[in-house]
């Protein structure tokens, strides 16, 4: 099926939920209202004409600082300076967050791309894990790295980072941590290194001797 025709089917079903169809791009895509995304996915999965039985990819995106003019002038991410200190910025991030869904149908052999955008303050998108089980891990990853909360997800924990990690690394305003659990993150020796190099024992111990030194 033509992608345009798929979008028209979808728009007829969703009504207000289908926002726009972006045709003149390398990869045409449909813009869907966040509240309608679960219905849209369920429809595309169940309808026999579309039959999208595979979710190829689900990507979380932070659109903050994106150069809409296409001149490559997006805001640079924050890293470490020459001394190994995390860079800081005064800029207040206010860009939207987004999710992109790439679908494929084994039976019909066609692809389709959906995108949603949510404001940074209310980063909540309905989960599609009940439509495609594979979405469960992708959504956990997007929550972990981009910080998009998927409502209705069966088990929304962090996927790759530790449960106690602070922040979401793929956000554009994410500041690199100076240390994690007391360990410096950039590999440089710090004055308060928790693992200082041990002093060589005085008194001529045998090399390789083990056990506590005798008093």
């Amino acid at each position: 099926m033509e992608q345009k025709a798929i979008y028209e089917l979808l728009a007829a079903k969703l009504g207000e939920g289908a926002l726009a169809w972006h045709e003149d791009e390398v990869e045409p895509w449909a813009e869907i209202a966040p509240a309608a995304i679960a219905d849209a996915c369920a429809f595309l999965r169940e309808d026999r004409n579309t039959d999208f039985n595979q979710l190829m990819c689900l990507s979380g995106i932070d659109w903050d600082g994106y150069d809409e003019a296409g001149k490559g002038k997006s805001v640079a991410i924050l890293g470490y300076d020459e001394l190994g200190k995390p860079e800081v910025s005064e800029r207040i991030a206010d860009g939207d967050l987004g999710v992109a869904y790439h679908l494929y149908s084994h039976a019909q052999r066609h692809k389709f791309t959906l995108r949603v955008r949510v404001p940074r303050a209310v980063a909540e998108v309905p989960s599609v894990a009940h439509v495609w089980p594979t979405a469960a891990w992708h959504e956990r990853e997007a929550w972990d790295l981009v910080g998009i909360r998927f409502t209705g997800h069966p088990d929304l924990r962090r996927m790759l980072l530790d449960e106690a990690w602070e922040g979401h690394p793929l956000r554009k305003d994410y500041m690199m941590p100076a240390k994690w659990a007391g360990v410096p993150m950039d590999g440089r020796p710090y004055a308060d290194n928790p693992f200082p190099t041990p002093e060589p024992p005085a008194g001529g111990d045998q090399p390789g001797a083990t056990g506590p030194a005798e008093a």
């Binding site: 190829m56 990507s59 995106i61 932070d62 994106y66 296409g70 001149k71 490559g72 992109a100």
Partner: peptide
Amino acid sequence: GHYIISDGGQIAFRNKVR
């Protein structure tokens, strides 16, 4: 899968790896 978003510059704006 690679999902690349470019802003027209020398550095990818987002590169998602599936």
